[in-house]
Simulated assay, not measured.
Amino acid sequence: MLLLIPGPVQTRPEIRAAMAVDIAPWDNDFKAEYAAIREAVRELAGGVAGQHVCLPLQGAGHFITEAAVRTFVPQGHKLLVVMNGTYAERMARLAREAGREVVVLPVPDTRSVTPEEITQALAADPAIGHVGIVYSETGSGIINDIPAVGAAVRAAGRRMIVDAVSAFGALPFSLKDQPEVDAVVFTSNKCLEGLPGIAFAISPIERVTACAGQANSWSFDLADVYAVSLRAGPGSFRFTPPVQALHAFGKALEVYKAEGGRETRLARYRENARLLHEGAQALGLKPYLDWQHQGPIIVTIHQPGDPAFKLQDFVDALKRRGVLISNFYNTPVPTMRIGCIGDVHADDIRFALRAMSEALDELGIQRRNAA
């Protein structure tokens, strides 16, 4: 089965095989392996030893996003959330339910926020201390310009939290070049092509220590994660870790390096996205985004306006042909989400396009443009 979703992604056999072991999380061999993973991902984020730290947390991207908000945004303080997609909406909800005051900056989900919009929003409310932004919105497929936004945040003297869950490992990011960032957060099962179960925040150490005690949660306190690692060593976990997922993630990092790292992986994803964007149009379908705004992580396509079209029927028809896509959408109008990341290559996208053509024919879809 060819898995074309924006995560968990299709993985290589050797990464899946790495899960088939029993591991004691306190074993010294595993502790060394885990400490090496923390160091490796800190370096991937442009972190500097002694200045930045990798803070792992069991669970999904929502967990690490909430942990970052709780840890770095004091309760009752204002967080500006750039609202141009579903995952921004989720960040806002996580913040509100954590007792943080959210100010929204509405932006269409068809383009990046501009630095000027950030500057104006921060100037309008000096009480805003942090900006929360999603790097890659997998509802629509847009990419927010994180360096440009960060420069505006830095100029205004504010702090930033970056949800890079579906971006990290492919799109560029450097903590040492963006000192306004309190945390960049991501997971093991997106562009680094590992398996689900573990999430990471990379943060400046001085900010982590300055924010100790304000998370109002033991489980989601990243300052406590850091404090425990100081006491027990970088190979320690506070609670039972997903050891098999971490072991597989170590293998995924080896594969990532062997492929050529971030630039090579990004080039592969971009080619996947180009083929899918152009191929959808050749089938008479309309991509949700113009190519100039299209990111390399996921291509979103308008559902055909033909009254015979039903998304689940289309998903099932594709699955019978060996291709699996999402059976839901996150845009204001009906769309289809097709991922470009994971162990997916150009020939896989061509295969998927043939399957899409056959599925549309099987379902008798004549009117393929959006309603």
Score class of each variant (00 low, 15 high):
236 S>I: 03
280 A>L: 13
199 A>D: 04
193 E>L: 07
27 D>M: 03
87 Y>H: 15
256 Y>R: 03
146 I>F: 03
66 E>G: 14
310 K>W: 08
124 A>K: 11
42 R>Y: 00
38 R>G: 15
105 L>G: 02
105 L>Q: 10
32 A>H: 13
330 N>A: 13
245 A>W: 01
236 S>N: 08
248 A>N: 06
339 G>P: 02
347 D>N: 12
284 G>I: 12
353 L>E: 11
292 Q>G: 02
290 D>C: 03
33 E>I: 08
82 V>A: 12
193 E>C: 14
70 R>P: 02
144 N>C: 08
174 S>N: 13
17 A>G: 08
160 M>T: 01
317 A>P: 02
314 F>W: 13
34 Y>H: 12
55 L>I: 11
356 M>Q: 08
118 I>C: 07
80 L>H: 06
24 A>T: 13
7 G>K: 05
82 V>I: 15
196 P>R: 10
297 I>G: 02
277 H>K: 05
275 L>S: 06
165 V>N: 11
300 T>D: 10
92 A>S: 14
242 P>Q: 10
163 D>L: 07
129 G>S: 09
214 Q>R: 14
181 V>L: 07
9 V>K: 01
152 A>S: 12
55 L>K: 08
247 H>V: 07
175 L>W: 08
250 G>S: 12
124 A>L: 08
169 G>W: 01
56 P>H: 02
364 G>T: 07
64 I>Y: 04
267 A>W: 06
369 N>A: 13
157 G>N: 11
299 V>Y: 07
216 N>P: 00
309 F>C: 06
330 N>M: 14
101 E>I: 15
4 L>I: 06
311 L>Y: 02
297 I>S: 10
86 T>H: 15
32 A>E: 15
311 L>V: 03
47 G>C: 10
152 A>G: 08
119 T>D: 14
43 E>T: 15
26 W>Y: 12
63 F>G: 01
262 R>S: 09
364 G>K: 07
142 I>H: 07
321 R>H: 05
292 Q>A: 15
169 G>F: 07
90 R>L: 14
262 R>G: 03
